[in-house]
Design a protein around this nucleic acid. Structure first.
Lengths: 198, 198
DNA sequence: CATAGCATGTAAACAGTTACATGATTAT
DNA sequence: ATAATCATGTAACTGTTTACATGCTATG
């Protein structure tokens, strides 16, 4: 077995953009712009797509009849509303049923912390403090969404699955906040004189 | 401001492979193979590099005098031991001092959960159960390393920074384990009949 | 005697982002 | 006026992985 696979991190399959798009359209018919917006508001912290991926994918899905297009003229502007077809839904369901994969993680903050011995402790502490503030902001946002979704789910208005991913976000940032605080303390307590140069 | 940037996720700078490599060599002189192995054992859960990135980067760093190469013959085989230079250390320290960036996150599990409404609840539960087992295995590994590193740091043998990244790993998987268990319960409680096809 | 590890490296393919083009509308 | 939002799309670039080539050594 390969060395790198101890975490099961491999990307042997192709792009999943098409499923992210089909998934979005499984909620309701939307334009490309609306899909992007909806992703930015809801799935961005675990999945992102750029325009360069989104628009060509929509065109391919339309060509393969997994979605249909309805062209609207809003004033002078062209708006294309995409709707998922039965074949598209089936394709989405097939993918949802298949095993998921882990993607490589890249956290530059942790890479900088890992090699923190080469710089003054204050440098690492500052990075962590910046991350702490970011997480505190995110926590407020996520908690708001979580509260709204919780009552909505309890009243049977919304699918429980949206709530689950929000809860993943809340849990993650809470843990990161605790890690930031503990790490700052530990650096202050244990950091030894760092490696200087020149 | 751009829509996508609400999480501050952008990759405007170039590749950070060179810094990951310089960082590794700041610990001790190593061969390319040893760098890869060391990364797989310690930084893999927040940073990965493939051979296709690693070896060309080592060659470039040697050409730019950020590292020196010492060729050894081990039996019949060639082994190249790389050592960081003063210029290389300075380059590393510069990067460590600069602001870090967030990379886009891709968690296929959460994407599948988010659109779980399109399949039977059992499908989503199975995905989560698989993830739960993976996290439980990782937790054992991380806790072992955490215990060893903690005493090592307390005795002044090891830099506190390695411990911090391990603690980040422990915190993350603990949170994920709790999320998995809660999510399975919530699906069982709230999941409504899913969208069927055909 | 086959498999895994040690060890270096390359080429092709792919995934993905960025930056730009275009242009209308709405808010400040 | 200016900026932001709405709206679609493309091209160039870059980053990254994968798969392969090569061949020795140690282990079961």
């Amino acid at each position: 077995m390969c060395l790198l696979d101890i975490y099961g991190v491999f990307m042997t399959n192709g792009s999943k953009t098409q499923y992210a798009v089909l998934g979005a359209l499984s909620i309701q018919p939307m334009s490309g712009y609306e899909i992007k917006k909806m992703m930015a508001e809801s799935t961005n912290y675990f999945w992102t797509e750029s325009n360069g991926q989104l628009y060509p994918t929509l065109a391919k899905l339309a060509k393969s009849k997994f979605v249909t297009v309805e062209k609207q003229m809003v004033g002078e502007k062209l708006k294309k509303i995409y709707t998922i077809t039965a074949a598209g839904l089936e394709k989405l369901q097939d993918w949802l049923t298949q095993d998921f994969q882990y993607y490589p993680v890249r956290k530059e903050l942790l890479l900088k912390i890992f090699y923190g011995q080469n710089v003054a402790p204050a440098v690492s502490i500052q990075h962590i403090q910046k991350h702490l503030r970011k997480c505190q902001d995110l926590l407020k946002m996520y908690k708001d969404i979580e509260n709204k979704l919780t009552s909505s789910v309890e009243q049977g208005e919304t699918s429980v699955y949206f709530l689950l991913t929000v809860k993943a976000g809340v849990g993650t940032v809470k843990t990161e906040i605790a890690w930031c605080k503990e790490s700052i303390d530990l650096i202050k307590k244990y950091a030894k004189p760092h490696r200087k140069n020149k």
